[in-house]
């Protein structure tokens, strides 16, 4: 092993990170080369100095700051779930809402039909008109479209439309 190559391998030699053949070659070179031995000692002392460094103490309040950065006491059970994918709980909630939105009008419509059959369509419509008239949010045009003139008069609406 020539001197130049040996110099480049000194650090790895020091750490015993050379292949066994290279280790032996470097060792032979070191035995004959005082310059390399001095260099090796310098590297060894540098390594020892670095290894002797004390780990600095954690700054005050490290853990408290860490918790405040985390901002929450515990990871949620869905922390591992990619946020852009619907979670089963969310999917279930959406399905349930859909079901309610379909079921409520269907059931109410059925109840209305039963009541209309019970009291007769005229009375049912009259009552419906009266109920609608009490609803401040009801669209008057819709009321005019659905109910008969007689029922509109009953609830105080002019069947001919608003007076111009």
């Amino acid at each position: 092993m020539n001197h130049h190559r040996a110099v480049r391998l000194l650090s790895a030699y020091l750490d015993a990170e050379l292949a066994s053949e290279e280790m032996a070659e470097a060792q032979r070179h070191l035995a004959d080369c005082p310059e390399c031995r001095a260099e090796l000692e310098g590297l060894r002392a540098t390594r020892r100095l670095l290894g002797s460094l004390e780990a600095p103490d954690l700054p005050q309040g490290f853990a408290a700051d860490l918790w405040s950065r985390l901002g929450r006491p515990a990871p949620g059970p869905w922390a591992w779930w990619p946020f852009w994918m619907p979670r089963p709980a969310t999917a279930f909630a959406v399905l349930a809402l859909d079901l309610v939105l379909v079921a409520v009008p269907a059931i109410r419509g059925h109840q209305y039909r039963l009541r209309a059959a019970e009291v007769g369509p005229d009375l049912f419509l009259r009552r419906a008109a009266q109920a609608q008239a009490r609803d401040p949010l009801m669209d008057r045009a819709f009321v005019g479209l659905v109910f008969t003139d007689a029922n509109l008069r009953l609830i105080g609406e002019d069947p001919r439309g608003p007076v111009r």
Binding site: R8, L10, S11, A12, E17, A45, T46
Partner: peptide, 13 residues
Amino acid sequence: VKSRLHRARLALR
């Protein structure tokens, strides 16, 4: 790793 470490030690030495 080997070459950087050697360079670093030489500079630090």
